[in-house]
């Protein structure tokens, strides 16, 4: 198996170099998506299925779509894109950092980390999957802040909209032929995606999965619906979208404050921990789906022919 790992590592490095220093912006983005997929393979080899799922869904998937959309909008043909000249002083600095990091990575003998402690406490967290236990209970404060980071990204894009206000639907106008293949595909896939997303959310308690991975799949389904013209793109005008956007962190924070009543900030009583976590995760998945859809579609551009 070591040969496979070495081969995988070499491939990852090669694709990463191609993405960063290779010729052409569109090629770089394609290489980046491939890099994401290879990386999730690496996570599978490292027995981290949750991370593999997150990496391929969010890292390769959504970020890839984001970048592809951007390359499309920047509308620069690839032909005249020169390969970037090597900037030697920075290269030297980077290689020094590389040397330091590799040296450190080799010197560190991986220990058990906090794995035994987590295992000991797992039963009291209300979920079986240790990663979800950490995310939703042990380090719940990090996850709440992380969902706020997502909201910040959306609000950050808000002033970039044409009129500085994001009242029209998100993203560029889409024209899919009504009877065409895309609209057909757009009607067929979403129900399945919905099923997979909810499954991922539910399975998160005991197997790899969880709010973020589920949310991403739902977001992808949402973006597809918008592209297929099945649904009008979400926009800040509709209060429903805004509430959906805010639901996740709001529920999470509400539970946090409620926790003050019986133990402490963000404390879930062990009896209802599983129920509480699942409610939070459902709200979180909804919010994440809406946020990621808005992020991928980007701020509204009125009148730009797609």
């Amino acid at each position: 198996m070591a040969v496979f790992d070495l081969l995988l590592c070499a491939l990852i490095l090669l694709v990463a170099v191609a993405a960063i220093v290779g010729k052409g912006l569109f090629r770089a983005v394609v290489f980046f998506v491939i890099y994401g997929v290879l990386l999730s393979l690496a996570w599978v080899r490292l027995d981290a299925p949750d991370v593999a799922l997150a990496e391929v869904a969010i890292g390769a998937g959504l970020t890839g779509v984001l970048l592809l959309g951007a390359v499309g909008r920047l509308a620069r043909s690839d032909a005249d894109e020169p390969a970037e000249p090597i900037d030697w002083p920075v290269a030297v600095a980077a290689s020094v950092v590389a040397a330091l990091l590799v040296g450190a990575a080799i010197k560190i003998t991986p220990g058990t980390g906090l794995e035994p402690e987590v295992r000991a406490v797992l039963t009291r967290t209300g979920v079986e999957n240790p990663v979800t236990a950490i995310l939703m209970n042990l380090r719940a404060w990090d996850t709440l802040l992380e969902s706020m980071v997502l909201i910040t990204a959306v609000i950050g894009l808000w002033p970039l909209a044409q009129g500085g206000d994001w009242m029209e639907p998100a993203g560029p106008a889409h024209h899919a032929q009504p009877g065409g293949v895309l609209s057909g595909f757009g009607r067929l896939l979403p129900p399945v995606a919905l099923l997979v997303g909810v499954y991922l959310l539910w399975a998160g308690a005991s197997q790899p999965g969880g709010a973020f991975q589920g949310g991403t799949v739902l977001a992808a389904a949402g973006v597809l619906c918008v592209m297929a013209g099945v649904v009008r793109a979400p926009g800040m005008a509709a209060p429903a979208w805004r509430l959906a956007l805010v639901a996740g962190p709001a529920v999470f924070a509400a539970f946090g404050v409620a926790g003050l009543a019986w133990g402490g900030f963000l404390t879930f009583p062990e009896a209802w921990a599983k129920g509480a976590i699942l409610t939070i995760e459902m709200a979180l998945t909804l919010s994440i789906a809406v946020v990621l859809a808005l992020l991928v579609l980007g701020p509204p551009q009125a009148g730009e022919a797609r």
Partner: peptide, 16 residues
């Protein structure tokens, strides 16, 4: 399920 989905996606993408 995976096989069916990939087939569907491949077909659509090829069309597009």
């Amino acid at each position: 399920l995976i096989w069916a989905l990939v087939l569907l996606a491949a077909g659509t993408v090829a069309q597009l």
